[in-house]
Structure formats: structure tokens, C-alpha cells
């Protein structure tokens, strides 16, 4: 068999906080894409599952000098000493060498939630309930992403279902590399303000790589050295100043 020689990618994201209006379209398109079930009656902000969560961050000034940005927080896809990978006793999460995606396999998880404690970004969620859709609604599930059972941790995998589809399409056309236009996570596609840019950080010409190098771009908690691959951007200096000690509402 011919040896597959795929290009190694480091997929990353750049979120423009000045453009984000906090509408929540990314959260819903994510839930629909990744078959995240509606909340049970008792679910709260602490027990709910949102692979990307948009929270308000305030500059702390008094009205009317108050200013807010909305921070969409998907898995930050840490590359180095990935905290969740380091602590998982089950090898239920790993950093994919082909794509740099921190891939969670919930079916392998035993539910100890160590990873949730370890994640400095609070980007991991636990299934306190079995996924349940109202009767008939399971027909609307995305066929490309498996639903998870109660008792496991889950998180954003950069829409791996779409990565699979892009790879299949590329293979069918005889290509080894996926076309960037074929692999766009749901939140990126959904954002009405075009606040999210996605692409390969290894490709210096990609919009995300160029944007990440901008002086107004930053990453949260760089001091931890996790080398996350989700960049943010804001003209507001106070937002950038908060990047290493942020508190979301």
C-alpha cells in the first residue's frame, strides 16, 4: 500500500473579542453539530454542557465607564504539557500528532473528572445525565458525532466530525491534504460577526497564523506555558492586560 504522507497541521483559532457581540450563535450551532443534548430540568451553569461557552468579562469600571467583552471559550487545544492529557488515568485524551487537536474520546473516560480540575480554562464538561432529546428529536442528530453517555467528561474537539468529512472528501478526490474551506468548525461558520478565524497555524500564510502574530492578539494564561492554540484579539488594552489573570462573569 502506498505510504500516506499527510501534511502535519496545527489547527488553531483566533477570536476577535471586539467583534463578538455575545449572541450565542456559536454555542447553539456547536450543540447541534456535536449532538449535545438539551439541559435536564435541574441543570445549571455549573452542571450544563457547552463545548464553547461565551462569558462576559468586565473592565471593572463603574457605569458608564464600564466596558464588557464577551469571551467565547472553547477547548484551548494546549500543545505543551497539555494539562488534561497529563492527568488522565485512562488515556481518554491525547494530542493528535497530525492536527494538534486535543482529542477527547468520552467512551474511554471513566469519569474521574481529574481533567476538569486540571484544565485552567474550565473548558471541560461532565455529563451528569444521559443525553436525552424530546421524542422524535433524535432523528435530527448529526450522523457524524457520537452521543456521549452519562458519567464521562467531554469537550470541544474542533468539530472532529467535520475534519473527518473533509478528509473523506479529500480522499475521494485523490488528495492527501484537506482543503481549508472543507474544514471549518461549526462555531466559526456560525458567527454572524465573523469574529472567529480558523486554520492551520503551521501555514504562515493562513489568516489565523497572520492574525495570531498581530500585536493585539494574545492567549489566555500564557504564563502556564500550555501553548494553547486558541488566540484572542482585542484593541482594548484592559482585555489584553487581563489575559493572565482573567475572571469571567
Amino acid at each position: 500500500m502506498e505510504q500516506a504522507t499527510e501534511k502535519k497541521s496545527r489547527f488553531g483559532m483566533l477570536i476577535d473579542l471586539d467583534r463578538c457581540t455575545g449572541c450565542g450563535a456559536c454555542m447553539i450551532s456547536c450543540a447541534v453539530e456535536n449532538n449535545i443534548a438539551p439541559a435536564e430540568q435541574k441543570a445549571t451553569t455549573r452542571t450544563g454542557v457547552t463545548w464553547i461557552r461565551v462569558s462576559a468579562m468586565s473592565n471593572g469600571a463603574e457605569f458608564p465607564a464600564t466596558d464588557t467583552v464577551y469571551v467565547p471559550m472553547p477547548c484551548q487545544q494546549c500543545e505543551k504539557d497539555t494539562p488534561c492529557v497529563a492527568v488522565c488515568p485512562q488515556n481518554a485524551v491525547d494530542v493528535d500528532p497530525q492536527t494538534g487537536i486535543v482529542g477527547q474520546v468520552p467512551q474511554r473516560c471513566l469519569g474521574c473528572r481529574y481533567c476538569m480540575t486540571a484544565c485552567p480554562y474550565h473548558a471541560r464538561y461532565f455529563d451528569w445525565w444521559d443525553p436525552r432529546w424530546p421524542e422524535g428529536m433524535e432523528q435530527t442528530l448529526n450522523p457524524d458525532v457520537a452521543p456521549r453517555m452519562r458519567g464521562v467528561a467531554e469537550k470541544c474537539n474542533f468539530c472532529h466530525g467535520r475534519l473527518h468529512a473533509a478528509r473523506t472528501k479529500a480522499a475521494a478526490e485523490g488528495r492527501t491534504d484537506i482543503a481549508p474551506a472543507d474544514y471549518v468548525p461549526a462555531c466559526v461558520e456560525a458567527c454572524p460577526a465573523h469574529a472567529i478565524v480558523f486554520g492551520d497555524l503551521n501555514d504562515a500564510e493562513s489568516e489565523v497564523a497572520r492574525g495570531a502574530a498581530h500585536p493585539h492578539s494574545f492567549r489566555f494564561l500564557v504564563k502556564l506555558g500550555t501553548e494553547s492554540k486558541v488566540y484572542y484579539r482585542s484593541e482594548r488594552a484592559w482585555v489584553r492586560d487581563n489575559a493572565d489573570a482573567f475572571r469571567l462573569a
Binding site: 500516506a4 491525547d94 493528535d96 474520546v105 474511554r108 473527518h164
Partner: peptide, 10 residues
């Protein structure tokens, strides 16, 4: 072929 879990798990 070196792959991570997400290469084959959806």
C-alpha cells in the same frame, strides 16, 4: 501511520 484518537473516533 501515527494517529491520535480523533482520527478514527467520532
Amino acid at each position: 501511520k501515527v494517529d491520535g484518537c480523533v482520527a478514527c473516533h467520532k
